[in-house]
Structures are given as structure tokens and as C-alpha cells.
């Protein structure tokens, strides 16, 4: 059993790390052709271009970060109470509500995006980061609600009753009982929210109208070409914050677990 765990761990590390190594090599290589196992010429050209004063990279990083964090915050604020009702409550039509909430995750994105784009234009939300953030909530919310409502389904309300009987107010119950107990789930839902928003291309392009340049807009544009060094460098920049969030999240997951 112990060996099995080690093998699984090693395989996972290989699956996760090996592609990253290829990206690292590619991002610093120039003209890496078969049969060279390791690039013959190294170059910082791709990085110099990405970080040159003319490059759109830094503003794009900032945009992506602001939007993803906003979306995460708002999605949790909306998703948490919704998931509580859906996870704990029993009422007629609950299944239908769930279906409607999940619909954006099931319908092809282009169909949704084109219609949304027209509506957002009418509302004057297009071309703004706020509009883009609101649009991101649509694919994000189903994941957040689903993750959290699953947790609430197994959540024992009697802990809250106990606290209330000891004189705790609503806020104290939320802060001292509900949140700590559900913390791992909240972190997981937040992670989903952040990563889904962080990697949106089509919605960002259509709602942002090309005026809100985020990292995926740059990355997708460059993958449509063939400059492997730039694609690899951009991909690394794209993965880096996601990895950081993941590491941070996994640490707080460990801390938050009730043993």
C-alpha cells in the first residue's frame, strides 16, 4: 500500500512537471530542431519581447488579476448563500433551479457569448473590466455553487443550533462555526472561480471587445502563430499565478481541515 502511494505520487509529479520542463526549455530556445535533444542555441529574445516597454504583458497581467480576484470574491458571496439553500433546503422546483444554474456550463460557450455580447452592448457594459467580470460570473457560478452545495448537503446544522443555544449571534456563528467547518470547500470553490476566470478567452474578447486585454487574449493570439519560444514564455507567465494560488490554497486547505 505504501509503495502504491509512492508510485502514484511519482506518476503525478511526472505528469505535472514534465510538460513544464518542455515549456521551460522552449521558452529559452532558439531554433530547436530534431534530432537535438536539448536546444543548441539559447536565447532570451522571447522574454525580452514580452517584457519590453511596448509589450502589453504587464497591463494584461494586471487586468487578468483584478478581474479574476473580483470574480472570485463576488462568486463566493453569491454562491455561498445559494449553495446553502440548495444544499440544505428541500422545496419544490429545486431540481429545476439547479438545472438553470448549471445551464451555462452545459450550453456551448459561443452560443451564450454572442447573445450576451449583444445584451451587454445594450446595457453599456461592453468594453469595461466590470462588464467582463460580470460576464465571467456566468461560467464560474455553476462550479462554485455545485462545489459548495455538495458540502452543505453533508453539513450538520446542529452545530449552528448548539452555538445559538450558547448565545452566539448570526455573524459569530458564520465566522466561528460555518466558515471554519466549510473552509476547505470554500477554498476549492474559490480556486475554481479564480482559474475559470483567469483562463477565459472568448467571453473576455466578445464582452471586452478587444478593449480589455487579459493574459488569455495575448496567449491565444500568439498560439495561433508558430513562435514556440513566445508561446512557451507566455504559457509560463499564465501558469505561474495559477500555481501560486494552488500552493497557497493547498496550504490553507491543510490548515483548515478539521481533524
Amino acid at each position: 500500500m505504501k509503495y502504491f502511494r509512492w508510485i502514484a505520487l511519482t506518476l503525478m509529479i511526472i505528469a505535472l512537471i514534465l510538460p513544464l520542463i518542455t515549456f521551460l526549455l522552449k521558452a529559452f530556445a532558439r531554433g530547436w530542431f530534431f534530432p537535438q535533444i536539448i536546444p543548441r542555441t539559447w536565447s532570451l529574445a522571447a522574454w525580452e519581447r514580452l517584457f519590453s516597454p511596448q509589450s502589453d504583458l504587464l497591463p494584461a497581467l494586471l487586468n487578468s488579476g483584478i478581474i479574476a480576484l473580483t470574480v472570485t470574491g463576488v462568486a463566493l458571496a453569491i454562491g455561498f448563500p445559494a449553495a446553502r439553500v440548495l444544499g440544505i433546503g428541500h422545496f419544490p422546483g429545486k431540481r429545476w433551479i439547479l438545472l438553470v444554474l448549471l445551464a451555462p456550463a452545459l450550453v456551448p460557450p459561443l452560443a451564450v457569448s454572442m447573445g450576451l455580447s449583444t445584451q451587454f452592448l445594450r446595457l453599456g457594459l461592453s468594453g469595461t473590466w466590470i462588464g467582463v467580470s460580470i460576464a465571467h460570473l456566468i461560467p464560474v457560478l455553476p462550479y462554485v455553487i455545485l462545489t459548495l452545495s455538495g458540502l452543505f448537503a453533508r453539513y450538520d446544522l446542529r452545530y449552528e443550533e448548539q452555538a445559538r443555544s450558547l448565545g452566539a449571534g448570526s455573524w459569530a456563528i458564520f465566522r466561528r462555526i460555518t466558515l471554519p467547518m466549510l473552509w476547505p470547500g470554500v477554498i476549492a470553490a474559490g480556486l475554481f472561480a479564480f482559474l475559470i476566470s483567469w483562463s477565459q478567452y472568448l467571453l473576455t474578447f466578445l464582452i471586452g471587445g478587444g478593449r480589455v486585454i487579459t493574459l488569455p487574449i495575448l496567449l491565444f493570439a500568439s498560439t495561433s502563430g508558430g513562435d514556440n519560444a513566445v508561446i512557451a514564455a507566455l504559457s509560463l507567465v499564465m501558469i505561474a499565478p495559477a500555481l501560486l494560488v494552488l500552493i497557497f490554497a493547498s496550504r490553507s486547505l491543510e490548515q483548515g481541515t478539521i481533524r
Binding site: 502589453d56 455580447s117 449583444t118 452592448l121 474578447f205 466578445l206 478587444g210
Partner: peptide, 21 residues
């Protein structure tokens, strides 16, 4: 403004059209 495929821009303009812009 970098685009992946010019057809995305065409779609953008068409959705502006349907929003009466």
C-alpha cells in the same frame, strides 16, 4: 488589438449591429 482569428472581430461587429450600434 491582437486577435486569434479575424472571424472573432467579424462576430464582434455583427453583435454590435444586432445591438443597434
Amino acid at each position: 488589438v491582437p486577435v486569434v482569428d479575424t472571424v472573432d472581430v467579424v462576430n464582434l461587429i455583427l453583435s454590435e449591429q444586432s445591438a443597434d450600434i
